[in-house]
Nucleic acid binder design. Structure first.
Length: 452
RNA sequence: GGAGAGAUGGCCGAGUGGUCGAAGGCGCUCCCCUGCUAAGGGAGUAUAGGCUCAAAAAGCUUAUCGAGGGUUCGAAUCCCUCUCUCUCCGCCA
């Protein structure tokens, strides 16, 4: 969420920066709502002030044993007037709030301008894609001929966009999680966390997935009686239960996490963190669940795009003055994993048009996939500045002892499914076996290759 | 699932209709005193917002005592609903 003060004082600038990332912000709509809010708020507060004054007066008079009827008569209709004003104010403030919740973050000044992902800027490359003296196969073909990857079974169990792995491949998957967690906790200073995989709507609002991206989430309905429900069941209205009463309230529902960023970042919601505890650095290995609504036909083959995948996430809650250093550092932590695994990659600075909703700046890390002859996203590292913190009221006590909004950062360190894909494809051998990167062998009891 | 208790400021804790944003204590900050230490004295110490203002300072003002609704001229205090925490019983990986 953007700072409404900024909108009030420098609306033109905000609109311009939003336009840079392809978001058409309606200045007139905002101005109209703002004017209405101002008028109603002033009016309401005047009435409240008057009510408070009169009430105090009555209290005074009563304690002196004076007659209060005159004063009471004077404010006879104040109540109704106030009630109406308060209702109107609440309505426009809700409207304003809803509008604010839909607006994406402003891009940082260092973010390259662009109109599409083709304008993303390559920052650096690491490693050299291997040249094959045989035709490189894709991970599906490799995994299936090893007998360790079985999409038909996954489809039978759940449907498309799920995977089923066995034996050495399932173990390699686990080994990757171990390697990543160990690196982040031992070498990069993160604290390991175990987190809920189901979270409430408030958490998702905090990190920005709600209200705008509800269709990307898996929602778990909860049966719950509402007050209207109880009444209608008690009898008077035998007809149909109101739909509102019959179905659970949306806000009580839980959602499967699309990324551990949600639980990890939301630990700071409604908190004031001590200055000396900054930066808070957390990592967690979790499954991630995404509906992939709207991605029909994209990456349908293989385990690149799944409804369920595992990821080791890194999150930092940082001092605003250090958050851009932290972004570089955090991106480096994710890169370090690829280096350990000897997987070639490149780092892309996303352009204004390609930024995610909450991000002020993002680096994508793309790993080389021989079968696709392309670099593909395997990690995304973002500084959200105070955008999420403002939604969450996540603060720290600054040098002056005053609460101030934190900056939140998150990154994949890394997406495990895609890392597995990269290993299968980059470490495949002509005989169909797959070598295991040295860094992982320790986690595989010394095994150095997967064979059929 | 059943029965009961509770939720107040950084913390503890008082407050059952009127001047309470909230006594008192602890903690913290500043000052004074004391040649160190210990002790003592004084002052200060919530957050978010609105309006006035070019801005700052300042002033005025609103809201917030778990959340939402209600009663009332007036609610931390009374009523209703919900959430969470704790204790006991039951059940359970």
């Amino acid at each position: 969420m953007l700072d409404i003060q900024l909108l009030r004082t420098d609306l033109a600038h905000v609109a311009r920066r939003l336009a840079a990332r392809g978001y058409a912000f309606s200045v007139t709509e905002f101005n109209a709502l703002e004017a209405e809010r101002k008028m109603l708020q002033t009016h309401t507060q005047d009435l409240q002030a008057r009510r408070n004054a009169v009430s105090r007066q009555i209290g005074n008079a009563k304690s002196k044993g004076e007659d209060v009827d005159v004063i009471l008569a004077e404010v006879a209709n104040l109540g109704g007037e106030l009630r109406q004003a308060e209702a109107q104010l609440a309505q426009t403030q809700t409207a304003l709030q809803q509008m604010l919740l839909q607006i994406p973050n402003l891009p940082h000044s260092s973010v390259p301008e662009g109109n599409s992902e083709t304008d993303n800027r390559e920052v650096r490359r690491w490693g050299t894609p291997r040249s094959f003296n045989f035709t490189a196969r894709d991970h599906v073909s490799i995994g299936e001929s090893l007998g360790l990857l079985d999409f038909p079974t996954a489809t039978k169990l759940s449907g498309s966009r799920f995977s089923f792995m066995t034996g050495g491949l399932a173990r390699l998957h686990r080994a990757l999680a171990q390697l990543m967690l160990d690196a982040h906790t031992r070498e990069h200073g993160y604290t390991e966390a175990y987190v809920p995989y189901l979270v409430n709507a408030e958490s998702l609002r905090g990190t920005g997935q709600l209200p705008k991206f509800k269709e990307d989430l898996f929602e778990i309905p909860r049966k719950k009686m509402t007050p209207t429900d109880v009444h209608s069941q008690n009898g008077t209205d035998q007809g149909a239960l109101s739909t509102e009463g019959q179905y659970p309230l949306e806000d009580d529902n839980l959602y499967l996490i699309p990324t551990a960023e949600v639980p990890l970042t939301n630990i700071a919601r409604d908190q004031i963190i001590a200055l000396e505890s900054l930066p808070v650095k957390l990592t967690a290995h979790t499954p991630c669940f995404r509906s992939e609504a709207g991605s029909y036909g994209r990456d349908t083959r293989g385990m690149i795009r799944q409804h369920q995948f595992d990821k080791v996430e890194v999150v930092q809650l940082a001092h605003p003055q250090q958050s851009y250093e932290a972004l570089e550092e955090l991106t480096g932590h994710a890169e370090k994993i690829l280096q350990k695994l000897e997987l070639p990659y490149r780092v892309m600075a996303l352009c204004t048009a390609d930024l995610g909703f909450s991000a002020a700046k993002t680096y994508d890390i793309e790993v080389w996939l021989p079968a696709q002859n392309a670099y593909r996203e395997i990690s995304s590292c973002s500084n959200c500045e105070a955008f999420q913190a403002r939604r969450m009221q996540a603060r720290f006590r600054n040098e002056k002892g005053k609460p101030e909004l934190l900056h939140t950062l998150n990154g994949s360190g890394l997406a495990i499914g895609r890392t597995l894909v990269a290993i299968l494809e980059n470490f495949q051998n002509a005989d169909g076996s797959v070598s295991i990167p040295k860094a992982l062998q320790h986690y595989m009891d010394g095994l150095d290759r997967l064979t059929a």
